[in-house]
Every structure is written in structure tokens, then in C-alpha cells.
Design a binder for these strands. Sequence first.
DNA 1: GCATCTCGCGTCAACGTTGACGTAGTAGGG
DNA 2: CCCTACTACGTCAACGTTGACGCGAGATGC
Lengths: 334, 334
Amino acid sequence: MEAGLAGRSMKKSESTLHDVARRVGVSPRTVSRVVNGESGFSEATAERVQAAIEELGYRPNLLARSLITKRSNTIGLIGVSLTDPFFPEVAEGVQREASELGLTMFFATTDDEPDRLTAALDTMISRAVDGIIAFPVQADASPLVKAADDGVNLVIVHPAEPLPGINSISSDLKAGAIAAVEHLQTTGRSRIAYLGTSTRSPNKRATGYIAAVEGEPRIVTTAPTAEGGLAGTREILKRWPDIDAVFAYNDIMALAAIQVLNESGRAVPNDVAVVGFDNIELSSYVSPPLTTMDMDHVTLGAKSVRLLHSLIENPGKEPEQIVHPVTLQVRRST
Amino acid sequence: MEAGLAGRSMKKSESTLHDVARRVGVSPRTVSRVVNGESGFSEATAERVQAAIEELGYRPNLLARSLITKRSNTIGLIGVSLTDPFFPEVAEGVQREASELGLTMFFATTDDEPDRLTAALDTMISRAVDGIIAFPVQADASPLVKAADDGVNLVIVHPAEPLPGINSISSDLKAGAIAAVEHLQTTGRSRIAYLGTSTRSPNKRATGYIAAVEGEPRIVTTAPTAEGGLAGTREILKRWPDIDAVFAYNDIMALAAIQVLNESGRAVPNDVAVVGFDNIELSSYVSPPLTTMDMDHVTLGAKSVRLLHSLIENPGKEPEQIVHPVTLQVRRST
DNA sequence: GCATCTCGCGTCAACGTTGACGTAGTAGGG
DNA sequence: CCCTACTACGTCAACGTTGACGCGAGATGC
């Protein structure tokens, strides 16, 4: 209501509980009760306090609140890089679920450098996060293990190796591989090759393939890249020219396989069916669109928040290792 | 050194400056000085303090520190969704630069809902961020304007419309369009059509095209989607069958254009050259790989952090509108 | 009519840190 | 020998909030 040169950039000096209290003529403690919806105040005071809050543009200072309550309602998310194809999806799921649960999210990436992982953990812990979700990929997980031992609420998404005693959530890769092979079998394929990779020793996809395939497994291992896929597929055709299906370790390799199969005069899917793994975006754009296994990273992220939340709410809860199903995405390559 | 049932999950009770101080036999204030690298302590005490910090696993409580210093060394990043094709790149650039500057990042998405934008701003401000970067896309920017008026350090990336008095950073779309057209001209094309869209009124790309093209502009506007691209390109061919180049509003439309051109018996790039805009990932995988304009979102994100940082360090700094260049990515479609 | 309870507050201390200021002891200058 | 300056601390209050507790007034129970 004041005349003059108001407007423009009035840097509103943050007001506090005390300012509101003074305005209304009650104690700060009473304002605090109203703000937090506790009991112990009359309807009339509540209204006057609310009015004063509006007028002053009061916002609670969550730092001060957290300092005393020992709860910040924040969680941290640590990943490798947003240029990784899956991490944005995981982060999206984390963000959605966190927002749903009223949690604010810290975010950091490590580029798989152990020092940066340690640094990210340190700052987040120093900022009193209630818990941390990590999607560490290849990196050395020992800083994470140490944090968990220190009592930090921690959930690891897709740990590279099993970490007993630590909360984690992984995709059911073996079941996914079995589903892929079974899909090929039910669509009439019987000579199914596995275009695999040997980078990690106990490869769950390979295990699933071996469990599901009938007769002698046809396995070639190579690098998990486009080049590896090209070479590996040629090797497969040389060793078993009569195959009628290829199950690949990932979509990039599957696309390479399609290319080699076409070059060799085999039509996909008529002569040879191809199933990939990962459901990268590209796989729905190529011709023929690729049948593949989808890990549903968004849901994976959301689930990891729910797990973390249950840790926060139930201190001393026993660690849990959740497996998340992988679903078949049927397109035109099978 | 203690025997017994130690190990396992020793929830290390957070230690404070007081604990360290007691251990060393100095005052907390002295420990604080050592931790912050201030002056006023001897080399000997510093060493003993450091040792005690190690032993106790002391971490400064950044909430308490921020509460009193009024600086949190945190910034917030608000975007629409990580499923948006560009936001992860912006976020990656923001994260890298923030990490470089010692800033911790809050993160939130809005799905273009104004209420969620307001909510994200509110919590971040309540958590005393030093500044906020927003990548709002279509949403109503008024909550952002209000925040800026309240004195929040704010940088908007790619504001939908110019917001005078507010710090922003945008891609130089007009210059990009000019560069695209000039590239076509220098490679010998003279009858260049623009496959545009009419969603936003003063379209910078259209302006650039009109400025650079020689003779009468050939413009068709349609929806900025694959379907729009198909229909628009057919319209172009009907009206100007003799065109030798198409400049599209975005890559999706450019890819649709290539498809229609091929169907009409025109070879790309031999008969007609095509330039897109955005440099989406897909554009390097298609055949022929698409020549397009790259907005370099990672650098854009990094620059926005530097701008925000300068705001934080220089209170009262005049608002700045930065334009970031768009670069030509030549591939095989031209 | 008195004890008891509940409501609607207020008071005080504490969370872990740093800013402002004080001070004992030593060094150096004249 | 005194004054000044500096070093190496310590003390105290404050940041904005909430937990623990206290207390008077009115309602309720018997």
C-alpha cells in the first residue's frame, strides 16, 4: 500500500519465526506449532499467524530445523554420468518418487573416479542427508561399503558384484535372458546362438541363456561394442551357419548382428530372429525395430527410493537385496 | 584397539568440534580455525587437531555452518524432465562446473507443471541455496520472475521469451539458422526451403532463414513432430518441386523430410540436401547421417553455473543475457 | 468444593558452528 | 624498561528452529 519507488528489486529480507511472532503478538514457539501443524493453539491464533506468514512471506529455514530434528528430508543421488544411457532414467524415477515422498534430492556424478565418489559421499553426509542412492557402475565400491558401515542409509542400484549386508536393487538379468530365449523358442526358433561378452566373470545373461537353451549352447564372446558385435556375429555364422536366432548381450551388439546377418544374405526376422538387451532408445528406430529386454530403469529408480525411505523410517532394518524384473519388449526383429 | 564385538555395523555417532576440542585439550573455536584454515594457531596444535579429526572421523556439519555464514555453497537445478532429450546434457554440464567450483547441487523436475515449479523453488530457497538454475521450457515463467524479484540468484537457461532484468543464457538460434543456410549455399544449393513450425510467434530460426536465403523464401509451417515433418515436406514438394535443399526446424522433422524425399525419388544429399537442428543422438545413426546444428548443451549448462557463480560472488550485479553459439555439425545429408 | 485434567500458550536450552571480541604471553623497537 | 604489536588462543553470543517443561485458566468429575 505504500507509495513511492517500491516494486522492482526489493530484496525481501528473509523473515523468521520471531518476526511472525512479533507481528501477531505470540511467542515464536506458538508460530512454530502452527507452521508444523502441531496442537496447542486456538483456531483464532492459527488464522492470525497464517495471515502474518502470508504478509511477511515467511519461509521456514530448513537448515535450522534439520539441525535440531536430525532429519533433513533430503536424499543424495550419486551416479557416474548423465551421458550414460541409463542413468537419466534412473534419476528420473528417483526424482519422481522422492518428490512424491516429500524428499529433496542432492545430485552428484563421479565419472567413475573413486576420489569423486568419496568426495560426493562426504559432502552429502556433511549436509546431513537422510540417505544416499548410488548407481556406481564399474567403480570401486569400497567407499560405499565404508559409508554403509558408518551407518549411512545407503541403497546401491545395480552393484557390479553382490555386496552382502548392503541394501541394493538389481535387475534380474538371468531371468531376463531366460525370458528372451523362451520367447525365441515359442516363436519357433531352436538353433539359438548367444552373442556374449566375457568382461565380467559370472555373467548372468550367459547363465540364463545356458539354462534355457535346449541342446548344446552356441556361445561366442567378444567386446560389448558395435565392433565386437560385428566380429562376434561373423564368428557365429562361421561356426554355426544354420542358426535361426541370435540373443545378444546388449542392443548395440544386436544391431551389429542384424547388419552382419543382412550382409550374409539372411533376412531378419524371417531367416534369423534377433533379441537384444537394454532397450536403448535407438532400438525402436532401426529397421526392423529390435525386440529386446527392458530393464525399466525409471521404476528401478523409484523402487530404490522406496527402499531407502523404508531404511530411513525403520532404523536398524535388516539389509535387503531386491531384484527387479526385466520385461520382454517384442518388436519386429523376432 | 579395543577388543570385543566391534566391527560390523558400528553406527559411528557423529562427532563435533567439541568432541575434537576435548580430545586435543583446546577450545572448539581453535578446532574451527584449523578446520577452516584460518590463522591463529600453532603448527603443533594444528597437527594434534588433525590427528584427532582423523581418529574421531569428524566431519563439519554444513547445516550449522551455513546457518551462521548465510552461505551454503549449494545451488539448485530445476528442469522439466530427464526424459527430455536435452536436459540431461544441460544437467551434466551444470554438475561438472558446480563440482569444479565446490558447489553441491540440488535437483528437481517439474514436468512443466507450474505448481511443481513453485514447490521446487520454495524448498530450495528454504534450504538456503545460494542460487538456482532453471531450464523451464514451456512452463509459465512467472514463479521464476517472482523468485528473482525476491532477490534469489537465478539463471534461466533457454527462456521461452525474453525476460528483461533476469539473468539468462540462450542459444543463438537465429545465427544458427543463418549458418545452416549459408552452409547449404556454399555447398552449391540455391533453392532452399524451410520446413518450419508456427508454435512460437517470433521464431528465431525462421528469422535467420529469411535473413540468409536469397530470393523469395520458401516456407511451410507445420507441427514440430515426425508427422508434421512428413506432411510439411510433401507440401514443400508440391509447391516447389525444384528445391535442392531443406532446412528443418528440428532433427525429427529433418529425418521425416529425408524419408519423404526418398519416397519421391529424390536422393539425399545428391538431389536435395537436408539440414536439421538440435543434433539429437539419433541423427548420427541414421542413413545418411544428418547434418545439423548443435547447441552444445553441456557447455551451456557449465556456462550457466559460471554466470550464477558470478551473481553469487558479486551481489547487486547487473542482470545479463548471454547468448551461446550454435555450431554446425556437418554429416552426410548435405 | 476440591482435585484433576486439558487447552493454550510461554520459557529456556540446545542443535553445531562461526563472528566479534578479549587476553595472556612473547618479541621487538626505542 | 616501557610501549606496541603480534601470536595463540579462549569466551560468549548468535544463526533459526524445536524438545522439554512449566503454568494459569477454564472445564470436568465426584
